[in-house]
C-alpha cells in the first residue's frame, strides 16, 4: 500500500498493482516499506493516537472464547482500546445483512466503508478477522475511504493494510500495548 486511500475500486490486490508483498517473519510492512516490527508498532500507535476517531475492529477470533489465546486477546484488546482512546466496533459476523447494518455498532466485511463513513473513522486496527474477510474489507476500505488501516494478523499479514503486523499473538500484543503507552506519553496525550 503505497498511498492512503481513497484509491478507487480495483479488482486487484496491492501485491499486483504496487508490487507490495507480505513481510517476512520478524518484519512488518509500513506502506510499501519493510521495517522492523517495533518501528511499525510505533507508527501504528502514532496513527491511532493522532488521527480522528480511532477504532479497533475485533473479529470473531477475538470476540468469541473459542480458545485460551482468544480469551487473552480479548482482555488485551480492551486494554489497547483504553491506551489508544479508541472505540471498539465488532465484526462479529461475516454474513451479508439485510436490509442494512447499523454502522453505529457493527462493521460488516462486505461493506466496511459504511461504518467508516458513518463514524468518520480515520484510523483503525483489524484484529481477529479471518484472512479472506480481512483481505476483502481492507481492500474496500482502501478503495473507498481515507482511513489508515492497521492489520494485526496472527498469520502472514495483509498487504492491503497501511501497516501490516504479522504473527501477532498475546506476547506481541503485550509489546504493542507497551509501545502504545510510550508513544502516548511522548505525544503528551
Amino acid at each position: 500500500m503505497a498511498k492512503l486511500g481513497p484509491s478507487g475500486f480495483s479488482p486487484y490486490p496491492v501485491a499486483i498493482i504496487d508490487k507490495v508483498l507480505n513481510p517476512p517473519p520478524g518484519k512488518a510492512l509500513l506502506f510499501d516499506e519493510l521495517v522492523d516490527e517495533e518501528v511499525a508498532m510505533r507508527e501504528a500507535a502514532k496513527a491511532m493516537l493522532t488521527r480522528e476517531n480511532p477504532t479497533i475492529f475485533p473479529g470473531p477470533q477475538v470476540l468469541y472464547a473459542w480458545n485460551e489465546d482468544a480469551k487473552k486477546k480479548a482482555k488485551q484488546v480492551k486494554e489497547l482500546a483504553q491506551v489508544l482512546n479508541a472505540k471498539i466496533i465488532p465484526m462479529y459476523d461475516y454474513r451479508p445483512k439485510y436490509p442494512k447494518i447499523n454502522p453505529e455498532v457493527e462493521i460488516n466485511p462486505n461493506h466496511p466503508n459504511l461504518t467508516i463513513w458513518h463514524n468518520n473513522i480515520k484510523a483503525c486496527i483489524f484484529i481477529g478477522v479471518h484472512c479472506h474477510y480481512a483481505n476483502v474489507a481492507l481492500k474496500i476500505i482502501r478503495a473507498e475511504t481515507d482511513c489508515f488501516t492497521i492489520a494485526m494478523c496472527s498469520l502472514e499479514g495483509h498487504e492491503d493494510a497501511m501497516i501490516t503486523l504479522r504473527d501477532q499473538h498475546p506476547e506481541e500484543l503485550d509489546k504493542f500495548i507497551e509501545i502504545a503507552k510510550q508513544v502516548k506519553a511522548e505525544l503528551g496525550k
Partner: peptide
C-alpha cells in the same frame, strides 16, 4: 460464547 470482556460492545 462471547468473551466477557467484549460483551459490552456486542449488539
Amino acid at each position: 460464547q462471547i468473551n466477557p470482556e467484549l460483551k459490552d460492545v456486542m449488539p
